[in-house]
């Protein structure tokens, strides 16, 4: 099986779209292939960062998975010593389940402890709020009309979204700025679409 197809399967496993049999074999491989396990760990870290859990997978996550699998293997070895192949299947399922439990433990949303608020909170004094308090003391640079675009709702355009992504990736790979060039790819898009007729093209170009 090629590396690419393994990664494809890994991606499907993350999305919960892999057939149970394939998932079991892949789980087994995860326990024996440190590089694949590291990829699994990083992809989970990436997904966790989307869920705002605030923490990434523990650094020894893969080692812990391997320990569980080794323990399960040892247990299965003892139990299946001289017994039927049925037990091997059960042990395989247990391995897959163990990995899945680990994944679920990492994927479950973090619980927020209840805030210990005082029963009776009192304020000694509250200063009146003035208009100047609400005015940000910022000094922003002037923005030209052409580039002016302030606090408008993000306007997405599916047809062209990928061009921005592809350019951002190319810029990150070949550009002078390295990883910083990827930042616009993940930041919230805010776009302005002007669909102009050809006669307006000259105006836009001037």
């Amino acid at each position: 099986m090629s590396d690419e197809s393994v990664r494809e399967q890994l991606s499907s496993l993350m999305d919960g779209e892999l057939a149970p049999d394939s998932a079991r074999f892949l789980s087994k491989r995860l326990g024996n292939d440190p590089e694949l396990a590291a990829t699994w760990e990083r992809w989970h870290g990436l997904r966790d960062s989307l869920r705002q859990q605030g923490t990434l997978a523990p650094v020894d996550f893969c080692a812990r998975v391997r320990e569980v699998i080794d323990a399960e293997d040892g247990m299965a070895e003892r139990q299946t010593h001289g017994s039927s192949r049925i037990w091997r299947g059960v042990a395989g399922s247990a391995i897959a389940a163990s990995v899945a439990v680990f994944a679920l433990m990492l994927g479950s949303p973090a619980t927020v402890p209840e805030l210990a608020l005082p029963v009776e909170a009192t304020l000694a004094s509250v200063a009146p709020v003035t208009t100047s308090d609400l005015t940000p003391n910022w000094r922003l640079s002037p923005v030209s009309d052409r580039q002016s675009f302030v606090l408008a709702q993000p306007q997405l355009n599916d047809e062209f979204d990928n061009y921005f992504v592809e350019h951002g990736l190319a810029n990150g790979s070949a550009g002078a700025l390295g990883i910083v060039s990827y930042v616009p790819v993940v930041a919230a898009p805010a776009t302005r679409a002007d669909v102009a007729q050809p006669q307006n093209a000259g105006t836009a170009a001037r």
């Binding site: 675009f149 921005f164 616009p184 102009a196 050809p198 093209a201």
Partner: peptide, 11 residues
Amino acid sequence: DRLTTLRRGAT
């Protein structure tokens, strides 16, 4: 026969 312009930040 169409011209489309879009902007994200300075891109």
